[in-house]
């Protein structure tokens, strides 16, 4: 199975270290979410994957071989700073870009027609890009990334500035591409969207990848937390290794080292009253992101 390997990328701008050994893999059919605060190094990583920027160290491999121009031409790329010829017609522009990626003219025209249809900008083919609304320009930009039927997709902030309908269309397209076996990497600040779409997530902070894994992996911390809510009665007792971290009215937040320890808490709760709710607390990606980012900040300051 094809796999895109990003291996120990390094990049400095003068004294600023933009990337400090970023490594991750994306396999065929996987949607990889790339998350991080502004200036963390997401765009730099993507630019290096595309060869638009030369890294100081590290390597990008596809199927085990370093990515060269031939492979890059098969990547669909949507840069963070949107770029299209403002005075060129949508249709002509997409055909031109497809041809630059090696498609024949007939194939390029067919692909242009297909993607403008799918993305809902078919009736704007004859208009100059300049004349389109920002949202529609964004759709054309995505069409530009897809028009040559790429083997790999690298999208920098594909969802920024889209209305909910467009977000749905775009999500559907990404899922469809992944289902075809295309590895998809995209960056976003819309974390709920990342959570919903991505198979795996990488959180980047100050040029380093500080968290990497599936959403579930990232959520499962060493000390799992549980909420216990009782309809009546009270929860009291001592359980080995378990601590109560917060308490409200008939509501307790307990931290347990293992599932068994948590079960012990549940058993004593059942004996003491009516249990209305007993759930593991799954931190959202937003919580994780904030944790990870602030953690490393503290770490860096220490």
């Amino acid at each position: 199975m094809s796999i895109l390997e990003i291996d120990a990328l390094e990049k400095s701008y003068g004294r600023v270290r933009a990337l400090d050994g970023v490594s991750f893999n994306v396999s065929a059919g996987e949607i990889f979410g790339f998350v991080g605060s502004n200036g963390a190094g997401k765009t730099t990583t993507m630019r290096i994957i595309l060869g638009v920027l030369r890294g100081d160290g590290g390597q990008v491999r596809w199927d085990g071989a370093p990515v060269d121009l031939q492979v890059r031409r098969r990547i669909g790329y949507m840069p963070e700073e949107r770029g299209l010829y403002p005075r060129m017609k949508v249709g002509e522009q997409l055909v031109y870009l497809a041809q630059l990626h090696g498609l024949s003219e007939a194939d390029a025209v067919a692909a242009m027609e297909h993607w403008t249809d799918v993305l809902g900008v078919a009736e704007r083919r004859g208009d100059e890009v300049d004349k389109l609304s920002l949202g529609n320009q964004q759709r054309v930009q995505l069409a530009a990334a897809l028009v040559h039927d790429p083997d790999i997709l690298v999208l920098d902030e594909p969802f920024s500035g889209l209305d909910p309908v467009a977000v749905a269309v775009m999500s559907e397209v990404l899922r469809g591409q992944a289902a075809k076996g295309v590895p998809v990497i995209f960056s976003s600040h819309q974390l709920e969207l990342v959570e919903k779409l991505c198979d795996r997530v990488g959180i980047v902070k100050a040029g380093r990848l500080v968290a990497l894994g599936t959403i579930d992996e990232l959520r499962s911390t060493d000390r799992q937390q549980w909420t216990v809510t009782l309809a009546d009665g009270d929860l009291a007792g001592e359980w080995p290794g378990v601590s109560v971290t917060a308490q409200g009215e008939r509501r307790w937040l307990v931290e347990a080292p293992s599932r068994d320890a948590a079960q012990a808490v549940l058993a004593s709760a059942l004996s003491q009253g009516t249990v209305a709710e007993f759930t593991p607390v799954r931190p959202s990606l937003t919580d994780l992101f904030q944790d990870v980012v602030s953690d490393t900040e503290e770490g860096a300051h220490a």
Binding site: V52, I75, Y77, G83, L84
Partner: peptide, 17 residues
């Protein structure tokens, strides 16, 4: 400069030297 200011150059450079 037009290609540079419209940023289309990044799309182009991804496929062309």
């Amino acid at each position: 400069v037009e290609e540079k200011s419209s940023r289309v150059v990044e799309v182009l450079l991804a496929t062309v030297r």
